[in-house]
Every structure is written in C-alpha cells, then in structure tokens.
Design a protein around this nucleic acid. Structure first.
Lengths: 332, 332
DNA sequence: CTGTTAGCGCATTCAG
DNA sequence: CTGAATGCGCTAACAG
C-alpha cells in the first residue's frame, strides 16, 4: 500500500520527521549529507507527500481552478494551454472544470473548488448571473473572469466582441456586399449579442440601415445549427455575404451551401469567428476573426496569481484585447 | 475570509461538531429539527467543507484522475465526457490532466494525482513505457488503461485498431482500388502501427502484396501533416485510394488535393479515422472509422470504480471494443 | 439521537 | 542544523 508517511521516511533515514519536511520544502536548510540520506529513503520507500495534509496545514492548495463552458471547444482549449503554462511556471496545478453552460454544473464546480481551497478561480460564467461567482469572491477566493467583461468589481480579461463584429462586417461591406445575414446562437449568449452590436455599428458607419442585416438565430452554435440556417437562407433567397457568430456555424453553412451548388465566395461571401484550426483546413479556407486565446489564458492567470500573492496591493483590472481579421478564400 | 469551520457552525447552531459532520455526511442520523438548524447555520456562515481535511481523514479523495494525450483532441474530449458522467453519478470528481504525449508531463501528472490520493487513475499512456504507471499501480492506486491494451496485469479498455485498419482498407479495396497509400504519424505511436497492421491484413486477405500500400509518414498527425503527405503524393503520382491514420490528416490531404484540382472521390477515394465531428461537416464529407469513444470512457470508469470499491473480488479485465466503418462521400 | 474525543499526515514553531 | 511538539479541520467511534 502507498502509506509510507513522512514519519517512516524519517525513521528509515535516521532523522526526525521535521527534517524530512525540510528536505521537501526547504532543502537549503538541510546539510547535504543528511539531505542525500533522506532523499534515498524517500526513493526506497516510494514515499509520496500527502497533498491533503499539506493543504490542510497551509490553509490553501497550490492550485487554481479553471471553469470553462465547453472543454471540447478549441477556443477554451487554447485558453487552457495559456493557463496551464503560467500556472505550471509558478508551481501551481490547474483543476479544469466544465460547466457545459449550465448554472447548476457551474455552481457544483465552484463548490468543489472552494472545498479544495484553491488559491483562485478563472471562470467564463455560464451567463449574466454572477451570483455564485460573486459569492465565491466574497468568501475571499481570488477570481478572474475570462472572456467576460465584468461590470462589477471583479478582475476580467476579455476580447472586444463588438470590435470583432465590426471588423467582420466592415470587411464584408468593403468587398461590396449590400445584403448581409448574421447567423448566430441565442442572444442570451453575450458573445452573440455583442458581435451583433458590432455588426450593426459597421452598418451604420457605412450608412446602411440595420435591416440590411438579416438575422438567423439557431439554438446550437455548431455545424448542425449552420446547416439549419443555410437551409433557411436557401429557401428565402441568399444574401451577398454571411457573418457567423462562430466557425462551427460557418462550417455548417459552408457545407450546406456547397451541397446546394452555391459557390463560396463566388455567390456568397462567408466569414466566421474564433479562427479555430479547422477553419483553415477545409476545402474552402474560412475567413474568420481571430482572438488572442492563448494570451487570454496567460494574462488571466498572471493576474490571478498576482492578486493571490498580494491581495492588498492589487487594483482590480479589466483587460480587453482586440480581435484580428483573418481573410481567407471564403470572402476573398 | 472563508474560514468558517465546522466548529463555528456547531457553536452557532448550538450543537456539537460531530452533529454538524453528521448533517454533512449522514443526514438521516440527525433529527429533522436539529438538521434544519444546522443547515441554516451553514448557510448563514457561508460554510464550505474543507475537502483536504476530509480527504486526510478518509485516507483517500473521492476523485479519479484522467490523464489524456491531448485535451484538444475530440477523441479524448468524448472519452472525458463518458468518464465525467459516470464519475459524477457515483459522486466522484474528475481531475483532468494533459500529458501532451510527454513522459515527463505524464510523470508529473501522476505524481500530483498520487499526492491528491485519488481513488484511481484512468490513463492513456504516452508511449509503450509503462514504468510510471506501474509504479503507481504497485503503490496501490487503481489504474485502468484507456485506448491502450496492456500486455501486463493492468485493466484496460481499448478499441481494436487492427480491425479498424482492416475495415478501412477492405472498404477501399471493395470499391475497386488497387494502388493504395497509408498516411500516418510515426510508427512509434501504437495506433499508427496497429492500423497499418490491419491495413496489411486486409491486403493479404484480398491476395494483394504489401507493397500495394505506399506509406507516407509525417511527423505531426494534423492537417498540416496531411498537406505534406498530399504534396508528396501529387509529385510522385496519385494512388487510387488513401487511408489516413486520423481525420485531421485526412482533412489536410483532402484540402491539398482539392486545391490541386484532384477530385475526391472521383480521382482518389479517401478515408480517415476517429470520425470527429468535423469529418461530416466539410464540403466533401469524410468517410471514417468510428470508435465508441464515449463508451470507452464510461466503461473504463465503471471498471475503475468497481475495482476501487472491491479491490479483492475483482479480476483484471481487458476489454476491447470493435470500431465501425462510416461511409460518406469521400469514398462513395 | 447527540456530545466527546482521538487522530489522519504534515509543516511549523521553538529548543537544543 | 536538527528534533520534539502542536494543531490545521474533519470524521468516526463510542459514550451518554
């Protein structure tokens, strides 16, 4: 059994438990010879430090929680990489949780993280209701919002979705489009409504009416949702250009149009959002709006750990990155 | 600060700490009125149980570790969903770790899991060297290998990759192909070599020589790798059909061929492996080999927790699922 | 049904 | 530089 404690190691090495602890946590305080003997005992006994005991003693875990909406979404996978790298550099573990956009799962995850006494939590909230997040924060756990700009007093790191929507539509308009469509998930999803806001701003700037942008709202932001939207557009009459609220939708649209014999970008220009890996890999490479996802995770984690290390001296920050237009064949 | 302990709750509710613990862990043992009073105190004080203390006391965490090669890979995302669902049903948390196919990260993850005293570990090993996995197992931690059939005495749940390779190539042959290509990652990756083995078996069954299958090995199993392979094929002369070791490779091949004006499946038939979501969504829907990924995670977790609950009475099992051919347009 | 109590394994005092 | 002692917060066992 894996129950060699620090005590047995001490006995085996002929030292006291305190010395073993020092070898583990403050090696410089221990004479080289003693240290070597202890380290050998650790190896021989297959000793593994009991993290719970250490955490209990310390009052907090050297870990941060990361709660995302969908671990399967490439956007969050990239964010997670950024988080992982920084946390690992600063000797923290990352506990990755998936809320699946459900408040209930979000709350459950948050509870587990609180029970684990993580130093802090990075979270993309499942909606506009930040009650459980704020409760956590009030209880003294550091919190940084990811991809969600907070109106309140929470730190946040996000990307300007209004600017992104504007970029996309400005691009389509510059290509000569006059009738546009916006394929989106429910407007309750902040990203969807913000991107629409940006799209409308672009329209205004160009002196066009809001109704030049037809809206198609589908329940799921995936390829199937895109297909549904495309079928509707095919039935109702195609616009000149289509802006999709994410790449998965755009890929679904692209496929449905191709199958119906519609040429992209010949007949219709198309642009997505997120610039996921697959966007560039399709038969018709997809234009998209790229977000600095890795940096999002990286900066958010740095912010979080800085707050943890110096809770007093740190002002709340709300950082917003700018997205970037990536033009590929689908709107060339 | 979030430091309301069980003791304060007890004082606040006018009961003893033991009773609070009972409300938390064995509510049925406590009189309804007392329970209500304690629950109110818990809410009022914002008490959250200290998981480390509980784990320390119990000797083990109600959590399992899941170590995968790449959290960004849809295959593992589906596996993780299966794991998550079962673990959650049985009241266990899942600690998801990414090894990135690196032994070093794998070992580090395993150490963290051991420190956390997880009940068991589900792991797709980074290679054939199972030393650190076996060390963990020897220390008394339950282990189930995922997508890796173990020759030794470890439980495992996997999919028959030889059968999958056979399925793919048999299908291509049945379509009349005579000159084939196999686009693959390094043969050090077990999946790649097993799938090749199956491909060759199919060739033999059809009475064809092994050299009817040209091999293209690329360093990375992604769309870019596929592009490289396709460029080589375009330069050297195209085969009748191409079998790719995964869908990402196949999508890369598909795109490069399309751009070069080669028709799929008109000029070349194409089949991938894994049947990721995007396979069906492209302009030319991709044939593929589907694996029961969700079930893989589900069954592995059930096996793991069964072993944990009854370490003695459980024989080691090595379960192998069969993959399934999915024919779409790219090889129709 | 409720109260009391003894550690779980470790890290950190404070002496020596 | 090393050793002994204390308690982190909780749960289970037992006593009342």
């Amino acid at each position: 059994m894996g129950t060699a404690g620090i005590k047995e190691v001490a006995r085996f090495a002929g030292v006291s438990p305190g010395t073993v602890s020092n070898v583990l946590n403050h090696p410089e305080r221990v004479a080289a010879a003693t240290r070597a003997r202890v380290e050998e005992a650790i190896r021989d006994l297959g000793f593994v430090r009991n993290g719970s005991a250490a955490t209990l003693r310390a009052g907090q875990n050297r870990a941060v929680g990361l709660v995302v909406l969908d671990v399967g979404n490439p956007f969050f996978v990239e964010v997670a990489r950024g988080v992982e790298d920084v946390a690992s550099d600063r000797d923290h573990a990352v506990i990755l949780c998936n809320s699946g956009e459900s408040f209930e799962k979000e709350a459950r995850n948050l509870r587990v993280l609180a029970e684990q006494r993580v130093r802090g939590v990075l979270i993309t909230p499942a909606g506009e209701n930040l009650a459980s997040v704020e409760a956590l924060h009030d209880r003294g756990v550091a919190v940084v919002l990811v991809d969600h700009s907070s109106p309140g007093d929470l730190c946040s790191v996000s990307v300007d979705d209004v600017a992104g929507g504007d970029l996309a539509v400005t691009h389509l308009l510059s290509r000569g489009a006059e009738r546009l469509a916006y394929v989106s998930g429910p407007m309750a999803i902040r990203q969807c409504s913000e991107r629409r806001k940006g799209a409308r701003r672009a329209l205004r700037t160009a002196g066009l009416p809001v109704r030049a942008l037809e809206e198609l709202i589908v329940p799921e932001m995936n390829a199937n949702g895109g297909r549904l939207a495309a079928e509707k557009l095919l039935a109702d009459g195609l616009p000149d250009a289509i802006f999709c609220a994410n790449d998965l939708l755009a890929l679904g649209v692209l496929r449905a149009l191709s199958q119906a014999g519609v040429s992209v970008p010949g007949d219709v220009a198309l642009i997505g959002y997120d610039d996921i890996e697959f966007s560039a890999a399709g038969a018709v490479p997809l234009s998209s709006i790229r977000q600095p996802t890795y940096r999002l995770g990286k900066i958010a984690t740095e912010l979080l750990l800085d707050v943890c290390d110096d809770p007093a001296g740190h002002a709340h920050q709300q950082i917003m990155f700018q997205p970037e237009l990536v033009v590929r064949e689908s709107s060339r």
